[in-house]
Amino acid sequence: METPSQRRATRSGAQASSTPLSPTRITRLQEKEDLQELNDRLAVYIDRVRSLETENAGLRLRITESEEVVSREVSGIKAAYEAELGDARKTLDSVAKERARLQLELSKVREEFKELKARNTKKEGDLIAAQARLKDLEALLNSKEAALSTALSEKRTLEGELHDLRGQVAKLEAALGEAKKQLQDEMLRRVDAENRLQTMKEELDFQKNIYSEELRETKRRHETRLVEIDNGKQREFESRLADALQELRAQHEDQVEQYKKELEKTYSAKLDNARQSAERNSNLVGAAHEELQQSRIRIDSLSAQLSQLQKQLAAKEAKLRDLEDSLARERDTSRRLLAEKEREMAEMRARMQQQLDEYQELLDIKLALDMEIHAYRKLLEGEEERLRLSPSPTSQRSRGRASSHSSQTQGGGSVTKKRKLESTESRSSFSQHARTSGRVAVEEVDEEGKFVRLRNKSNEDQSMGNWQIKRQNGDDPLLTYRFPPKFTLKAGQVVTIWAAGAGATHSPPTDL
């Protein structure tokens, strides 16, 4: 069977082979063929449309019947899901209200924590001031004790010197008594010597008188005998007598002179000795008097100093007792304040721990409710997609609110971060928990396990030699990294520990 286009092609070929045509004729024939082709295509399209309309009418009838069946089946399910969705919305509203209440309680707890922290800071300042005052008082007490020990040692030294001076005074008084006794003995010996000298002088005078009498008696006897002796021998006898008398007189005078000289010499020697002894004793007595006077003056001065030191010692002891009493009071006050502060800190920690436990429990309940609501929403969306139902505006708002919801909680030295990733086909969620104590904190952990970043959050360098970082993902083997023995993380510095297959460059001390 030939198509209209094939017939047109045969006809035009025959005409062209029979007679030659002009260009205008050819153009018109071409346009006519195009119109015929378009008409044929339109006829085919109309036939196809008619057949499709016939099929569409049958399909519409089948769809109508199916919609009636589906509407009867879905009406009950939709009512049940609407009821469950209403319950879920009520639960979500109650959870939102509970969350708002918990946020209010958390803000209240934070305000109480700030207030307690301020009070604690003030108490710590008072405690530091009390400890500083206690240290000052202890230093003052130590200085006073040192001064007291010095004063006591000086007192003992002065008492020793006073005892020595008293012994010296006793010795000097004994020496003075001995000197006085020697002086009295010398004076007695001097008086005795003077008496003996006077006696010797009297004896000498008496001997002179006796010698004169004997001489006169001898002259008288000789004169008497001379009268009786011969005149011839008188001159010879007289001359001999005169010579004998002269010789006797000379001898007697020599003896008297020698005895006189010896007596005067002895007397002068004894007198000089007595005078020297008297002068020496008088000098000793003067020196003893002077030394005794000086000793008395020094004793008086030392007694005055001793009394002054005793007064100072009594004042120091009184002040020391006052300082000890004040120190005891300060210690009791400090202990009482410290006990009160520790009790308040313990109560505050217990209260904060209780509130944190309650908040953690409520947060766990909220997370469980969020997971249940998310599961209900997934089931509802799956059924709506299976039944090709359009979601209600309320469910769209709930989905938008659930997809944009995120929370971040800080308290008790722990930080909890939650992130949620969404897509049109599926939804997944993960959470990161970080707890830090000390100078070094974990700043970031790569989700794909490529690196771990640490930061020194203090103002001092931290030695991290032979420290270890351990990481384990589920049931995978435990991964451990040990820092070099001499590694030190500077204040405020960040160090990144890269995985072996991350392709990073080893560049200490920032990249390991």
Rank of each mutant, 00 (worst) to 15 (best):
K261I: 07
L188Y: 01
R190V: 13
Q258A: 15
E213W: 05
V227C: 07
D254W: 13
E238P: 00
K265V: 05
E257A: 00
T266W: 08
E262P: 01
K233R: 04
E228A: 09
R221Q: 06
Q246V: 02
Q182R: 08
S239T: 05
L263K: 06
H252S: 11
E262T: 10
K208C: 10
D243Y: 11
L204S: 08
K265N: 13
L197Q: 09
N195S: 03
N209T: 04
A193M: 03
D254A: 13
A250D: 14
L263E: 03
K270P: 00
A242P: 04
Q234W: 05
K181S: 03
L188D: 02
A242H: 08
D192F: 08
D192Y: 03
L226P: 08
R235G: 04
A250S: 03
T218V: 09
A269L: 08
Q246D: 10
Q255T: 06
L197C: 12
A269Y: 03
E228M: 07
V256R: 09
E213R: 04
L197D: 04
E262V: 03
D192P: 01
S212H: 13
V227Q: 14
M187Y: 06
L197N: 08
E253C: 06
R220C: 15
G232R: 04
Q251M: 12
K219L: 11
L248F: 04
R225Q: 09
Y259W: 09
E178R: 07
D272M: 06
D254F: 11
Q207P: 02
R196F: 00
A244D: 11
D205A: 02
E213S: 13
K201L: 04
L271A: 04
L271D: 06
T199R: 08
Q255F: 08
L215A: 00
Y267F: 08
K181Q: 11
K181W: 08
R240Q: 09
V191G: 03
L226D: 14
R189A: 06
N273Y: 07
A269H: 14
E202T: 06
E194D: 04
E214G: 14
D205S: 14
Y211A: 15
L271E: 04
D272S: 13
K201N: 06
L215W: 12
R225H: 15
A242C: 01
K260V: 10
K270S: 11
E223M: 11
A179I: 14
H252K: 04
D243W: 13
N273V: 12
E203K: 11
D243E: 10
S268V: 15
L271H: 02
E253R: 13
I229P: 01
K180I: 01
E186T: 06
E238S: 03
D230M: 06
T218P: 10
L226F: 06
N209D: 08
K201R: 15
A269Q: 14
D230H: 07
L271R: 03
D192G: 02
R189T: 07
K201H: 15
L263S: 09
Q255Y: 13
D230S: 11
Q207F: 00
A242K: 10
T224A: 12
E194L: 11
K180T: 13
K260E: 05
H222M: 07
V227F: 13
Q234M: 03
Q184D: 09
L245E: 05
E262S: 14
F237E: 05
N273K: 05
N273L: 08
I229L: 14
D192I: 04
F237Y: 11
A179W: 14
T266V: 04
E238H: 10
Q182E: 11
K219W: 03
K180W: 00
R221E: 06
K260H: 07
Q251V: 10
E217N: 11
Q184W: 13
Q255W: 13
Q207Y: 05
D205F: 10
T224R: 06
Q255K: 07
E253N: 13
K219H: 10
E202D: 01
D243T: 12
E264S: 06
M200C: 12
N195G: 01
Q198N: 06
D272I: 15
L226H: 07
T266R: 06
V227I: 08
D230Q: 10
H252D: 01
L241W: 00
L188Q: 03
E186R: 02
V191A: 08
Y259C: 04
K265C: 13
F237H: 06
K233M: 08
Y211N: 15
K181A: 08
S268C: 14
L271M: 08
S239Q: 02
Q251G: 09
N231S: 12
E257Q: 09
R190H: 14
K233H: 14
L226W: 02
R240E: 13
L204A: 00
R190C: 14
R235V: 01
N209A: 14
K233V: 11
Q234A: 09
L183C: 13
E214R: 01
Q234C: 08
T199W: 02
L245Y: 05
K270L: 00
A269F: 10
K201W: 04
E236W: 00
V191P: 02
E238R: 11
N231M: 00
R235C: 11
K270A: 04
L197E: 03
V256I: 08
S239R: 06
L248V: 03
K265G: 13
E202Q: 07
A250T: 12
N231L: 11
F237P: 05
I210C: 01
Q184G: 09
K261L: 14
E238V: 12
Q198P: 01
M187D: 06
A269N: 13
Q198C: 09
D205L: 05
A179E: 14
Y259H: 04
K208H: 05
N195T: 05
E228T: 09
R235M: 15
E213K: 11
Q251Y: 01
E238N: 02
T218C: 15
K219P: 04
D272G: 06
A250K: 13
E223G: 08
Q258P: 03
E228Q: 11
A269E: 08
S212D: 13
D205R: 06
E214M: 05
L245S: 06
N231I: 10
T218M: 00
A244L: 03
T218Y: 14
L226K: 11
R190I: 03
R235F: 11
E264F: 13
E217Y: 10
A193Y: 05
R216H: 09
L245T: 04
K265S: 12
S268Q: 13
K181P: 11
E257K: 01
K261C: 15
